[in-house]
């Protein structure tokens, strides 16, 4: 039981409406972190450019500061040397925060099945959506973002508050 629902007692309608409003706000302005690691970042840039225009989904611009970002798109392979940096950036982001593993390398290592590359970025941060593709097309990235939006839309507020 979260704080909100225990304070409100049986007012389920109020909390449900609040859930919807909060989730609408979270999906409507989910600003990504300006953060690219490899070739997937090229496709991420292309997604933000005018041809695919990620700002249609409320991702107006990438924030260079992790304090102002809600979404981390791990675009590219994470080497063992880079892993502490990625983790630190993730820790610096303010909650609620989401992570997308974009492309094969971030999801599970991809072709780089070797000692130098982290086999899936979910070893260091909790990933919400994995996107297949090497690299994924802008359409695939947008599809992944919409998958994330769908999973955020069904979240309950009490899960966050408690």
């Amino acid at each position: 039981m979260g704080v909100v629902s225990s304070k409100l007692g049986n007012l389920g309608v109020v909390t449900t409406t609040l859930d919807t409003a909060v989730n609408w706000a979270r999906t409507g302005a989910m600003w990504p972190l300006l953060f690219g690691l490899a070739c997937c970042a090229i496709e991420m840039m292309s997604t933000q450019a005018s041809n695919y225009d990620m700002s249609r989904f409320g991702m107006e611009l990438n924030r260079a500061s992790p304090r102002q970002a809600d979404l981390m798109i791990v675009a590219g392979r994470v080497t063992r040397k880079m892993a502490p940096v990625v983790r630190q950036l993730w820790d610096q982001m303010a909650s609620p925060k989401y992570a997308i593993a974009m492309g094969d390398c971030a999801s599970c290592g991809g072709v780089y099945n070797n000692y130098a590359v982290v086999q899936g970025v979910d070893e260091i941060i909790p990933v919400d959506v994995y996107i297949a593709g090497c690299p994924p097309r802008p359409e695939q990235l947008i599809h992944g973002i919409l998958t994330l939006h769908e999973s955020v839309r069904v979240q309950r507020l009490e899960e966050w508050v408690s």
Binding site: S107, C108, G120, D122, D128, V129, Y130, I131, A132, G133, P136, R137, E139, Q140, H143, G144, T147, S151
Partner: peptide, 8 residues
């Protein structure tokens, strides 16, 4: 091409 997963 729509291959996004919430679980590996």
């Amino acid at each position: 091409f729509q291959l996004s997963f919430t679980d590996r």
